[in-house]
Design a protein around this nucleic acid. Structure first.
Lengths: 263, 263
DNA sequence: TCGGGTTATCGTCAAATTGACGATAACCGG
DNA sequence: CCGGTTATCGTCAATTTGACGATAACCCGA
């Protein structure tokens, strides 16, 4: 089997104990966005075995000379045509962070494979015309989630969604789902979509605009729909949305069972 | 992309691209405990190159047929003599969770190596007599942290400490630092040590005992020192400390800079 | 046995925050 | 101009926080 070939280190590496395994490593990306008021995840249809024809998270093998982040960006681009801006891990609207690593055993029929999962939060946008070799990349709502995904991707997706739900409570990362300038209502729509709950518009407005280090008014107005035009905001300048902490946090209300979410 | 181009080198399997790297994988464990009111981390002195003689987090290579958790427990035991109870990931006082994975490039002079870091929270205890092949395993206070650690272990340690600090706000995991039955004062000592701040004893008592799903009185009293004996508590039954969420959380006060902690 | 030292626990109270919801402002389309 | 719609501002009671006083219940040494 494939695993046998990988069970030994290369002869050049004499300083690594030869009982140590060497593993193929993949990255898988949980790309989330909010479209039409619902949380969506990006999936591709697999063209090859294993799990041929089944939907899966975009991802693939890490090359020998790239970082995990580079691999995540490359695979995403190859399979979905999405180009993650370089500033995704920084101040921009996009946000890419490591989710967790899924163990080598029992998750790939080809043998032991390690998978490092990444979480991408991005504003809604259309997909470029099915670029690369991916048969089909599409956004699907995370609820309903019809058929199961390939590999252990259902578990990875669940972990990613739970991470996103928790993270927007304590960090300004909900803004990663919005364009660079957005209204308070758009931001509230993100919370409602990610949490799957209703949020009172008036209290949310007070809380969001009143939390230091979160929003910064641009002075401009966002027009368009019916009703009074809303003020446009951007993320507070000088704030790293990946590291900043909201004080006090925007807590989900104590609705149903708040115990053991991802157990 | 899981299987685009096909291997020329691996005759047994043709579904893994030969550009895909295969990486040696290590686990490193950030084992934290509270002793004498200060947060301590477990380190070992390296006997071999690279970084020979320097302190490092316990860890080592993952074998071909074990899970990451198994590797973490095995390395910890081999290098420090500590045996992680099987229930560490469950209801017991110990707590072992994955921290994050550190990329293959530029972190090991021997070449690309992936490291999956784990975070262990444990009650204070003495080390078994330097078992295994470890020259020396010892607890060192995380502040002062005299010389730098080997590899990128300073970064891993910083990430682990920050994870612990954040996690005890929203989960009952502070109890992982305590024996199975503990007093409110002991628990408060954990918060003070991990956060490095002072916590008002009266408000903490009110909050800790008043938060549903956190503490459960045993009826027994903890004697010993001077002063009035304190009631003994245990974690609320039926609560998985790794998954449960405290509502409302025990927030650190807004003291100094609460922005970009581990950046 | 008594008093002083020490720690645990319970109360009190003003300030801040939350949650629910009314009221008004500012736009749209007819 | 008028209703429909959404944004924003206020109000108010209930809850929570933070600061800190007051007791309770143990230890020890005299």
């Amino acid at each position: 089997m494939y695993g046998r070939c990988m069970a030994r280190t290369s002869p050049a590496r004499t300083d690594v104990p030869d009982t140590a395994g060497s593993f193929p490593v993949t990255v898988d990306v949980v790309a989330l966005t909010v479209r039409a008021g619902a949380l969506h995840v990006l999936v591709v249809d697999r063209l090859l075995e294993p799990f041929r024809g089944q939907a899966a998270l975009p991802g693939g093998f890490v090359l020998a000379d790239e970082t995990l982040e580079q691999a995540a960006g490359r695979e995403l681009e190859e399979e979905t045509g999405l180009t993650v801006p370089a500033q995704a891990a920084g101040a921009g609207p996009w946000h890419l962070e490591q989710l967790r690593t899924y163990g080598p055993l029992g998750r790939d029929p080809r043998g032991p494979v390690l998978s490092v999962a990444y979480l991408l939060l991005a504003p809604a946008f259309g997909l470029p015309a099915a670029g690369g070799d991916a048969a089909e990349a599409r956004w699907v709502p995370v609820i309903e989630e019809g058929k199961p995904l390939a590999f252990d991707h259902d578990q990875i997706l669940a972990d990613g969604v739970e991470r996103a739900r928790a993270k927007i409570e304590y960090s300004p990362l909900a803004a990663a789902f919005c364009p660079p300038e957005f209204t308070v209502a758009e931001l509230r729509g993100v919370y409602e979509a990610v949490w799957g709950t209703q949020v009172d518009a008036r209290n949310f407005h007070r809380k969001a605009t009143g939390t230091p280090g979160f929003l910064e008014p641009t002075g401009r107005l966002g027009g368009g729909g019916p009703g009074r035009p809303a003020e446009l905001y951007r993320l507070a300048s000088g704030v790293d949305p990946a590291a900043a902490v909201l004080h006090p946090p925007l807590l989900r209300s104590v609705s149903p069972g708040r115990v053991a979410p991802s157990a």
